[in-house]
């Protein structure tokens, strides 16, 4: 890393029914949050394969955030519980390999929680800024390319 101020890359996977709607609401209300969040809409938090999260970290992201509906409120009945289990496993794997498991964050943000969306994005970005770059992506370079 250069001497420049650290500007993290955070990939956000947002479920169609809750967190994407919250992101829309935050935008409509002109609530500001850092542009470091790079969003992608998925139908449900349960469809986010752990591979997506790891891939993002490998390809350059410093952190990933997965946003779903509150427990009990999943549009697909129980998708968020499945997501919760998947994220728990990803975190365990990261930790046991010696990586920082806070690089994966799961948050419940409902379709009416625009302000919460902006708050979470602000807080997580500041947290990652403090934490520094993710060392995960440099694995490739360890091989010497």
């Amino acid at each position: 890393m250069s001497e420049e101020k650290f500007d993290p890359v955070i990939v956000g996977f947002f479920c169609n029914w809750c967190t994407s709607a919250a992101a829309d609401l935050a935008g409509t209300a002109r609530l500001h949050y850092p542009p470091n969040i790079r969003p992608i809409r998925v139908m449900c938090s349960s469809t986010v394969d752990p591979v997506y999260l790891i891939r993002a970290l490998q390809e350059g992201a410093d952190a990933t955030i997965l946003g779903g509906c509150h427990p009990g409120d999943c549009h697909y009945i129980t998708g968020n519980y499945k997501a919760r289990r998947r994220v728990a496993i990803v975190k365990t794997v990261l930790k046991s390999l010696g990586f920082d498991d806070t690089r994966v964050l799961l948050e419940w943000i409902s379709g009416s929680e625009g302000p919460k969306f902006a708050r979470v994005m602000n807080e997580y970005t500041s947290y990652i800024k403090e934490r520094g770059p993710c060392d995960f992506k440099y694995i490739d370079s360890l091989g010497g390319d």
Partner: peptide
Amino acid sequence: GCGACSANCPTTAIQVVNFKKGQIIRAVD
């Protein structure tokens, strides 16, 4: 069409049409 099944498939045999894993991974990249 939630896609919970696809995230749990060890062989990528089951996928949601137009939300295929390859598509999402390319976007993630």
